[in-house]
């Protein structure tokens, strides 16, 4: 008998969720970093907001950006770290000789990344509210398209990172933590795109997250509404990003099988 597609995807997702039941370091990851981030940057922003001549809504800009950036980061990590879990536990071959297809594997990782980021986001949003009376939902209805765009961009980066680790092994593992940060300066997370030098601004134009954060600031400054143009830009770029990442993964998977590297990841 063969399991259905859905059953296989669910089975593989559950494999990862079991981890949270028993592994303290994994639970820490959900709570520890977000809490530290919020505490440190929350106080920094309170301090700065009290300075004379500071921006109105400074705390909102800053904490909003912090929480949204974390969504992008977690979405990417949800993919590449889940993949690494199987590398570390030498379980990758068990998975790839099972009837779970590569497409189902990726689907399952996408699904997992949502579960993981919902967990951390819930923690961050609640804490920001408790500590600083900051309510992310003031972003209103615009929050949904902004968040979805960040998730999809995180997926694209996560899929490409995973492909690179398959191909280049342990040396590429650092990408799982580093590569999203590479996008941070050009994402204009904590400052408007206009402060960037001209050539960096041209790069930022092609990075979906920069439009998301511009959109967020527009909503905060304008007191609501939906930043249509930013969202359309981000969504169009993301369509390209996710398509390219999937094609890259698919092509890379073929190369990896040709080079016989699947059994060697993590060695």
């Amino acid at each position: 008998m063969m399991a259905s597609k859905g059953a296989r995807i669910l089975a593989y997702t559950v494999r990862h969720l079991y981890l949270y039941k028993r592994s303290l370091p994994r639970l820490m990851e959900v709570f520890y970093w977000p809490i530290l981030d919020l505490v440190v940057w929350g106080f920094v922003s309170i301090y700065l907001s009290r300075q004379e001549g500071s921006l109105p809504d400074f705390i909102t800009f800053f904490l909003g950006a912090l929480i949204l950036w974390d969504i992008l980061f977690r979405s990417q990590q949800g993919i590449s770290v889940s993949f690494l879990e199987d590398v570390w536990s030498r379980n990758l071959l068990n998975i790839f000789v099972s009837p779970l297809s590569p497409a189902e594997y990726i689907t399952s990782l996408l699904f997992l990344s949502i579960v993981k980021l919902l967990l951390t986001s819930a923690v961050m949003v609640t804490l920001a509210w408790l500590l600083y009376s900051f309510n992310i939902f003031i972003l209103g209805f615009a929050l949904i398209p902004l968040v979805v765009n960040l998730i999809v961009m995180g997926w694209s980066i996560g899929i490409i990172t995973t492909a690179l680790i398959m191909r280049y092994g342990q040396e590429a593992e650092v990408l799982a933590w580093g590569i999203a940060l590479l996008f941070q300066p050009v994402s204009a997370v904590f400052y408007p795109v206009e402060v960037l030098p001209g050539w960096v601004r041209s790069i930022a134009l092609f990075v979906p997250s920069s439009h998301v954060f511009e959109g967020m600031r527009e909503v905060v400054a304008g007191g609501g509404g939906v930043p249509i143009s930013n969202i359309v830009w981000a969504a169009s770029l993301n369509c390209a990003y996710i398509t390219v990442s999937i094609i890259f993964f698919w092509w890379n998977f073929k190369v990896v099988k040709r080079k016989g590297l699947l059994a060697k990841v993590g060695e």
Partner: peptide
């Protein structure tokens, strides 16, 4: 040369694969 996820119990691991194989 292969192993199974360390933090899962024997039964949890086998359940995951049982579901993967239907």
């Amino acid at each position: 040369y292969i192993s199974l996820p360390f933090s899962l119990t024997v039964r949890e691991n086998l359940m995951v694969f049982a579901r993967l194989y239907g």
